[in-house]
Design a protein around this nucleic acid. Structure first.
Length: 137
DNA sequence: GCCAACGTTGGC
DNA sequence: GCCAACGTTGGC
């Protein structure tokens, strides 16, 4: 299994809205960046991803599961980009703020720190375990 | 194909 | 609200 991290501004699409969609999930559309697109194309059904709130909160709030692999993004008129369907798995007992990641020397290599603008990122198993632990899971 | 100008993202 | 980082666009 591979691990990922997706970012969303809560004013646009929040964790609560994701949870409300249930196990069926929701299309993760609107990605217009080729690096993020390549990451989405590597996602497999059953992979897990952290759900991060950018701008407001700036913390990892929950875990989602990839429930449908990549297909053309219906909101993209140029037909160049793709989306996946994700469903809320479970919330972190304790959200992990960006600050905690930046100050943990084991996590300074996370894309969240190095490439803060990338909206779909990969996470190593080591990073995944550590963040889960920090989040109380 | 280079690069300056411009737009967007997101932390601060 | 500012600005750094980075992607995209368009003139040459």
């Amino acid at each position: 299994m591979n691990y990922w991290l997706v970012k969303s501004e809560p004013s646009v699409w929040s964790w609560d809205q994701q949870v409300a969609k249930g196990a069926k999930g929701e299309a993760w559309t609107g990605v217009r960046n080729h690096t993020a697109k390549l990451n989405m194309m590597k996602m497999k059904k059953g992979d897990r991803a952290f759900f991060y709130h950018s701008n407001e909160g700036k913390e990892i709030v929950g875990i989602v599961e990839i429930v449908k692999e990549h297909y053309p993004d219906p909101t993209d008129k140029t037909a160049k980009f793709v989306c996946v369907d994700i469903a809320a798995d479970k919330p972190l007992k304790k959200p992990v703020p960006l600050e905690a990641i930046k100050t943990n020397e084991k996590l300074t290599e996370m894309d969240l720190v190095k490439y803060s603008r990338l909206s779909v990122q990969s996470v190593t198993p080591e990073q995944w375990k550590l963040v889960c632990k920090m989040g109380g899971i």
